[in-house]
Design a protein around this nucleic acid. Structure first.
Lengths: 358, 358
DNA sequence: GAAATCTGCTTAATCGTTTAACCAGACGAT
DNA sequence: ATCGTCTGGTTAAACGATTAAGCAGATTTC
């Protein structure tokens, strides 16, 4: 006695209706020639039996797995949930699954993660690269989400212009001395944001960039950034290039008794989870992750569709490997004004006399 | 002319050595009977050709996809990166891939997410349920990570005892009036934590629980929680059951000019990304996500291994569907003492005269 | 009215892997 | 000498889907 397999499959439907599997397949996919009545009968029977196509069978035959890979860089990055959610949403709307691979730590791990995905036959992948990383040639289409200024980038938020918006906002509030707070100069994203902010400042204003990772080299991880001192020197705006740094600035200033936004304004980037609930709530820039994900995924899907069923082992060497490009590669960010930014304190335009600590 | 397929497969290796595919398969899997020399020769040829087994072919034959699903609840939950990373690590160490499904929002979506995973033939899944959700019967093994007190839980951090540790810590520091800050009473995790904290307090001490979500019903999302008022009433410790609430407390107190930890101590939970870098750095409890993930994944893998190749459509109705259980279901959390908690301000032991807010 | 076209379906091959079943030869035991 | 066992392989049949090719009958075309 032949053992009964688990789920209903094409041949079960076919048998139960006395037709061939090919007809059932055609009816359900709408590809072959099947009469309207029969097609309808097949569809309803399929639904009735709870038919779910076997991805394995389909993948084997078509050479497509129906799965996209998602490679995330710094897992610590709290932006991860947003991106992952957006990508998963866009992918599943298109009938694709999302396999995650986390390149914990160094670049070597990133390559390993990519290989794991390839071994699982992903049809394409979305990579949010570790800062400063170049994506090597990969055997499948790749969408890169980094920064518009990065060569080989597929789509990203317009970080530069977002910086510009923050800068404009601070200028409009009358700030004249601003500290720009970033983490690491190797990040294209951060550089773009810093550049954007700077571009908004008028010549007579004063700006200073603090790279947190450098400060921590001496002070140790999580050390204070000396912002209170900056405030005493007459800086009234602290524009962080990420909400994490903004939070750091906010608490450091508050701890030192410097009121925000009365004595100093603080702004962030990315509208992370805590931004609306801290006191005062953070003024920040929000990425349109939904749009970015949709663009990335659809560019990827286009590339996948164009692929010949049998892929040549050696992809023709294009400019950036298999990185796909999208019609729109810059997505604007949105300024969210909350309570952490306010008018520059009046009478503060005169520079504080040179009492620098250390 | 037969068109050349892309990757090297078993038959290519077989042909190139003049043996049968079955032998190659046996040699590589180590299952059948193959002489040592031939096996070695096959392995080296496979490596030489860069052979990667086709998951699709294998999945079709074995009925196992080699993929686990991961269902995450509140995407907003910043714990997500940690868990996802840990699960992905444990799974990939065992040769499994991880497919994510995000149950954005309501319970209905959670069910949809689960269905998407099933359609992709996952061999099992890890579910971090939305608070208060019961997992319905599913056609594959399921590991649930929620709270030890939840019926049908597979493995979780020992939230209650973690609360206890925080409570002990505050008692040791001499605090006598503590505000416990939570978000939603429907969450088992939060309830456990609150219970643990309470259990540490001696009878003559005073504790009050604030449920943020309730307060926000009136005040609006992100409104102030009235903690400064509590501090004035004589409360010296603010124990939040999540770092997000702790952060909220910290900034709210600082903004009101109440020094932390000099005038009030603040503690959190989960050691999230910002905890070490805010000023003062947060005292908090850290989950051993690595251990939890390993336990969840290995329990899942055991259940998968025990499964008959052909699964019966109707799983025998066990107590909690297909939820697997693990030998260890409670993983201890670790107290991380930082600067946000300190000795209770002296001279404050006398109760502020009986002005209780509602 | 014979040839071409269309319609609706079936047959059969194929994707790459695993695995039960079989088989020829060598060897040891009775 | 004969039977059983072991060794090192081979053959062939799946798994479930897709799709090119074929085929009978009806319809159109000139």
């Amino acid at each position: 006695m032949a053992l009964a397999r688990s789920g209903p499959n094409l041949s079960r439907i076919a048998n139960s209706l006395g037709v061939s599997v090919a007809t059932v397949s055609n009816a359900l996919s709408g590809k072959g020639r099947v009469s309207a009545e029969l097609a309808e009968k097949i569809r309803s029977r399929a639904a009735e039996l709870g038919y779910v196509p076997s991805q394995a069978g389909r993948a084997l035959r078509t050479g497509r797995s129906g799965v996209l890979g998602l490679v995330l860089p710094d897992i610590a990055n709290p932006l991860f949930p947003n991106i992952a959610q957006a990508i998963e949403f866009a992918a599943s709307a298109a009938g694709y699954g999302v396999l995650i691979a986390d390149s914990r730590g160094d670049t070597a791990m990133q390559m390993e993660a990519i290989n794991r995905l390839i071994e699982r036959d992903v049809d394409g992948m979305v990579i949010v690269p570790r800062r400063g990383t170049r994506i090597a040639d990969i055997g499948c289409p790749v969408a890169v989400i980094d920064s518009p200024s990065t060569p080989g980038n597929t789509v990203a938020a317009d970080h530069w212009h977002a910086g510009r918006q923050i800068g404009d906002h601070l200028v409009a509030l009358g700030h004249e001395r601003v500290v720009i707070l970033a983490n690491n100069p190797d990040s294209n994203v951060q550089n773009d944001r810093v550049g954007g902010i700077r571009s908004a400042l008028t010549p007579h204003m004063k700006a200073e960039v603090i790279w947190a990772e450098k400060v921590e080299l001496n002070g140790g991880r999580g050390c204070t950034l000396g912002l209170a001192e900056k405030a005493r020197q007459g800086f009234t705006a602290f524009a962080a290039v990420s909400d994490l740094q903004a939070l750091r600035a906010l608490t450091e200033l508050q701890q030192a008794g410097i009121g925000v936004p009365d004595c100093a304004s603080v702004t962030g980037f990315d509208d992370l989870i805590w931004s609306p609930v801290v006191t005062p709530a953070l003024t920040t820039m929000r990425m349109d992750t939904t749009a970015i994900a949709e663009i990335a995924v659809s560019a990827l899907l286009d590339a996948i569709a164009e692929r010949p069923m049998v892929l040549s082992a050696r992809p023709a060497a294009k400019t950036y490997g298999n990185v796909v490009s999208a019609p729109t590669s810059k997505v604007p960010m949105q300024l969210i004004i909350r309570q952490s930014s306010g008018r520059a304190p009046s009478g503060n335009t005169n520079l504080a006399e040179g009492e620098h600590a250390k």
